[in-house]
């Protein structure tokens, strides 16, 4: 509706350490949007679809998704978000995972992931990659609320 409607960041990441590092680097990149952190897929999906302040009902969001989750595979979540006639279809999804397996990356893009970031062990490149997210966030088109709800 307007830019006052800040983009919420939904982080689905089971590793607390990773989550903390991601958050730190996002903040360091000068992004101060809300970050909602979920450590499993079930509660994350519940929030995405049903929470009153969640992205399905209320405004734009960015989803940071880890592929290795304890209760379900990240690709399943990705597939559900990006399926046809889903209110979240246009919500950008950034896949963040340790795998740099080409097959898996390709599969994620085929399912509709917008950005794929490998968590490198080299921390500097990791931090750099997260910082790129800042740029990415700044160019996200805030969708019309009616459309988002439709």
């Amino acid at each position: 509706m307007n830019t006052q409607h800040a983009v919420n960041i939904v982080m689905i990441e089971d590793d607390e350490g990773h989550a903390r590092l991601i958050e730190k680097n996002i903040r360091r990149a000068g992004i101060f949007n809300d970050i909602r952190h979920f450590t499993d897929g079930t509660s994350a999906l519940d929030y995405l679809y049903h929470a009153p302040e969640g992205p399905a009902h209320n405004g734009p969001a960015l989803i940071l998704l880890d592929l290795n989750l304890p209760d379900m595979s990240g690709t399943d979540i990705l597939a559900r978000i990006k399926e046809e006639a889903n209110p979240l279809k246009r919500t950008p999804v950034v896949v963040l995972t340790t795998t740099d397996d080409k097959v898996e990356i390709q599969r994620c893009y085929e399912l509709g992931c917008n950005v794929y970031i490998t968590k490198p062990v080299n921390y500097q490149s990791f931090a750099d990659a997260i910082r790129q997210l800042g740029l990415f966030l700044s160019v996200i088109q805030v969708p019309d609320i009616a459309e988002a709800n439709g």
């Binding site: 590793d15 350490g17 990773h18 590092l21 968590k119 062990v121 921390y123 931090a127």
Partner: peptide, 17 residues
């Protein structure tokens, strides 16, 4: 190797921190 990578990312990351 895949699962070992996740903690390693933490070790490296927090070492940098």
């Amino acid at each position: 190797s895949h699962d070992l990578r996740a903690p390693l990312v933490n070790i490296m990351g927090f070492t940098a921190e």
